[in-house]
């Protein structure tokens, strides 16, 4: 087993798929406090984390602030803590979730989402209105926003990010069965809402 590990240590990029690369980067971060390895992890996850956060806070500036904070926090935890971390994905999404919770706690109110498309769209992305397909997606996004938090998360992770059930279970600290059930319910509810519109 050790021999296998060593093989990977010496030939990082040729034989490995992303999953194993990630584990190697994680190991390098933890054993050697290697910022470069963490940089690769950043590259692999920044977009996912940004989308996850944006979904929850609904503003570009705040999503950017929180996403960069997430990676800084993650780094600090990884180099100072010995606790076992099975997957970086699960870990970094949990950090993101906590950061969002802290963000709302600091603002002293419950989670709220932009439900006023006119304002947001007018302000940020005028171009997209010209494309009819984008209008459709905008509508879908607003429909998802009507779901409860728990459902929004699984829909985002499963269908937008296309993650596996076990990855989602890891991120949400739930059993795979629980994720399946939640996903099923969320899908049903979403179909209902889409159908009603």
């Amino acid at each position: 087993m050790l021999f296998r590990c060593n093989t990977f240590l010496f030939y990082p990029s040729i034989y490995m798929n992303l999953g194993i690369k990630e584990k190697l980067w994680l190991l390098q971060v933890r054993t050697q406090k290697d910022p470069e390895a963490f940089g690769y992890l950043y590259d692999a996850y920044i977009e996912k984390i940004y989308r996850f956060v944006y979904f929850k806070v609904g503003s570009r500036e705040e999503a950017e602030d929180i996403a960069s904070e997430v990676f800084l926090k993650a780094w600090g935890y990884l180099i100072e803590n010995d606790k076992e971390i099975k997957s970086f994905a699960g870990f970094v999404f949990r950090v993101a979730r906590n950061q969002v919770i802290d963000f709302y706690r600091a603002r002293g109110k419950r989670q709220e989402f932009f439900l006023d498309p006119e304002m947001e769209i007018g302000k940020e992305d005028k171009e997209f209105r010209r494309v009819e397909a984008n209008q459709e997606l905008e509508k879908l996004l607003l429909t998802i926003k009507q779901l409860k938090q728990e459902y929004q998360e699984v829909v985002l992770l499963r269908y937008v990010e296309e993650m596996s059930i076990s990855e989602i279970a890891e991120i949400l600290s739930k059993s795979t069965l629980n994720v399946r059930v939640t996903l099923h319910r969320a899908g049903k509810k979403l179909r209902e809402l889409v159908g009603a519109e």
């Binding site: 977009e47 989308r51 944006y54 979904f55 997209f128 997606l137 879908l140 996004l141 937008v160």
Partner: peptide, 10 residues
Amino acid sequence: LRTEYSRINP
């Protein structure tokens, strides 16, 4: 949403 919709992407 992920591939074509720019607003939710950084």
